[in-house]
């Protein structure tokens, strides 16, 4: 009985620590929850959050005189999306913001 309790306690502590580490890693990326919805389907999954923390960069760009955020993939620099005043701008392949 005591052994089971000890195993449960160790598992629970390990789970909490791992969850805290993942949460810290994601929060340290600096991205907002909604920003990390990379496929714009209205839901931000854990996978999108981890992907954002590990493989997505952000830069400020000027769009028609406004300062916007451009998110891009580290692997090739391709744009994922551009946020201007909290709204997502659409752009197509070939657009300088995309490339």
């Amino acid at each position: 009985m005591l052994g089971k309790l000890a195993c449960f306690a160790i598992g629970a502590v390990a789970g909490v620590l791992i969850t805290a580490a993942i949460a810290h890693y994601i929060l340290a990326s600096g991205y907002k929850y909604a920003e990390m919805d990379w496929n714009e389907d209205g839901q931000t999954t854990l996978g999108e959050m981890l992907h954002g923390a590990a493989e997505v960069g952000v830069e400020n760009v000027d769009v028609n005189g406004r300062t916007c955020k451009r998110f891009f993939e580290y692997k090739d620099g391709r744009g994922i999306k551009v946020l201007c005043d909290g709204k997502v701008m659409t752009f197509n392949p070939g657009d300088p913001l995309y490339e």
């Binding site: 992907h51 923390a53 590990a54 493989e55 997505v56 960069g57 580290y74 692997k75």
Partner: peptide, 11 residues
């Protein structure tokens, strides 16, 4: 290298 994912080894 950049980021912590696949690009963290450089290119």
């Amino acid at each position: 290298p950049v980021g912590d994912g696949r690009s963290s080894l450089g290119h």
